[in-house]
């Protein structure tokens, strides 16, 4: 079961060595342009449930994304937009375990221009980071993050962002940046990955999504584009019968 899920999630993340091996028949090509159905691996829609986070982590991350992207008159909040579910699926796939990255040692502290040099994968950083946040808040406030008031949550996140929270072995500032980056990815990515539910962010800013032909509108300078967004899985309006 678990391995099936992991396989599925790898295909959601749309890259795996399995996929390359499955193209093995194309290794030597001559006298033809090869054609195979489904060679391009379409993305798979995100299913319900949690794949990476345990219940406590899920509660915390839902509360965090709901403060990073609060519900207001412009859009739904990060939680209802599916940002936590998005992060969960990313962490369970090839992003979470850094499968694509160079992960060989030795590990040394680098200069800022050399980029991230840690040994921990994003999945490891979330696991350790959320545990450290929880321990810190239980000690200082006797509460989990999700139990704080919205104001207390914002105050804590601002301190974390500013590098003013001592989380021991966890670098709070870089944890905050990682969560913020992934939250924004989820909010603005195609809904097929679990976030941006009902294309809320695209409707908010006016991005028409996965369209591919704007030729009619190129020279209509300074005029609003008249059509709403579509996603890879289509538009909800297409299947709604009144």
């Amino acid at each position: 079961m678990a391995s099936t899920r992991r396989h599925f999630l790898a295909s959601v993340a749309a890259f795996s060595f399995i996929a390359i091996a499955s193209r093995g028949h194309a290794q030597t090509i001559s006298r033809a342009l090869p054609w195979h159905p489904f060679a391009g691996e379409p993305p798979q829609p995100s299913l319900a449930g949690w794949y990476f986070f345990n219940p406590d982590e899920a509660r915390a991350i839902e509360a965090i994304v709901d403060r990073l992207i609060p519900a207001d008159d412009l859009s739904a909040g990060g939680k209802d937009a599916g940002c936590a579910a998005f992060i969960d699926r990313q962490l369970a796939g090839s992003y979470g375990d850094s499968a694509r990255l160079y992960t060989a040692g030795p590990f040394m502290k680098g200069t800022p221009t050399q980029g991230y040099q840690g040994e921990a994968t994003p999945a490891m950083r979330y696991r350790a980071g959320l545990a450290a946040v929880d321990a810190y808040l239980r000690k200082s406030k006797s509460k989990a993050f999700a139990e704080l008031s919205a104001q207390e949550q914002d105050d804590f996140l601002k301190s974390l962002e500013a590098g003013k929270v001592d989380l021991g072995a966890v670098d709070g500032k870089s944890l905050f940046n990682l969560i913020l980056q992934n939250t924004m990815e989820g909010f603005f990515a195609d809904p097929i990955y679990g976030g941006n539910r009902d294309m809320v962010s695209w409707k908010m800013i006016g991005f028409p999504g996965a369209r591919y032909d704007y030729r009619d509108h190129v020279t209509k300078h300074n005029q609003p584009y008249p059509h709403g967004p579509v996603s890879i899985a289509g538009s909800p309006e297409w299947s709604r019968k009144s």
Binding site: A13, F15, P34, P42, Y95, A99, R100, Y102, A189, Y212
Partner: peptide, 27 residues
Amino acid sequence: TATDFNIGYMQDELRYAVRKDLFLQPA
């Protein structure tokens, strides 16, 4: 193009621009 560059899902910023699906992987 016919097999791998699908007009139904090439417009996927997360997969191709952020996770860099078509690029050389550091691994």
